[in-house]
């Protein structure tokens, strides 16, 4: 079971780097949606025998992270008619290298952490740290509001991976509450994106900081 989990986590890490390296926003949305699907499968692999809690957490994650949120974002993309992230604060190749560096350090760092013995074999902790960092880079260095949402989602994915450690102990309500919060946040941001676009006819958030006469 753990080997399959590790294989999935490695794919998640590769998707992080891919999301950092590409300039097409649609590709980023698809990558994050695929990441959400993979994360949704994970609770099923962690428990030895399937519990109702794991199955429903997995179903909710697949539905929201993999399908509903990407659909909402794709619709928002279609409305505001932008295709690419044009001028990120840090270029695509450097941010990808930063992500790779962070992944390497996360691996090193995780071996130094005093973890419970059953948590040392799977890659969960380093993958969570690396994904959080990738989301952080995406969130801070991109100028378009919609790519910043993707960064927020990747960040949340990292926290979700961390939550996998507690999947047996964490009550289902907490997990579902977090997913609902995420859903509402994305919903609100999608409406905001539309308004930003109508007011400034651009999604560049740097314009929001400029004072108006």
């Amino acid at each position: 079971m753990h080997s399959l989990l590790n294989a999935l986590l490695v794919v998640v890490l590769a998707l992080n780097l891919f999301a950092l390296g590409t300039s097409r926003i649609i590709t980023v949305i698809k990558v994050v949606s695929l990441q959400g699907l993979l994360l949704g499968v994970m609770p099923l692999l962690i428990e030895e025998h399937l519990a109702l809690a794991a199955v429903s957490a997995s179903a909710a994650a697949i539905l929201l992270k993999g399908l509903v949120i990407p659909t909402m974002l794709l619709r928002a993309m279609r409305d505001v008619q932008i295709k690419r992230e044009m001028e990120p604060l840090i270029g695509f190749l450097p941010s990808m290298l930063l992500g790779a560096l962070a992944t390497g350090f996360a691996l090193l760092f995780a071996t130094a952490l005093p973890l419970a013995s059953e948590h040392t074999t799977p890659l969960l902790v380093p993958a969570a740290l690396a994904t959080i960092f990738a989301g952080f880079i995406l969130l801070t260095t991109r100028a378009k509001a919609i790519t910043q949402i993707m960064g927020y989602l990747v960040l949340e994915n990292g926290i979700y991976i961390f939550g996998m450690l507690l999947v047996g102990a964490m009550p289902l309500v907490v997990e579902l509450g977090a997913l609902l919060d995420l859903f509402v946040a994305i919903f609100v941001i999608c409406i905001m994106v539309n308004h930003i676009n109508q007011t400034f006819s651009s999604l560049d958030t740097r314009r929001l900081a400029a004072l108006k006469e």
């Binding site: 080997s3 590790n6 294989a7 490695v10 590769a14 890659l123």
Partner: peptide, 9 residues
């Protein structure tokens, strides 16, 4: 079983 992650890579 132990190394599926590196095999994927």
């Amino acid at each position: 079983q132990a190394s599926a992650a590196s095999l994927v890579l």
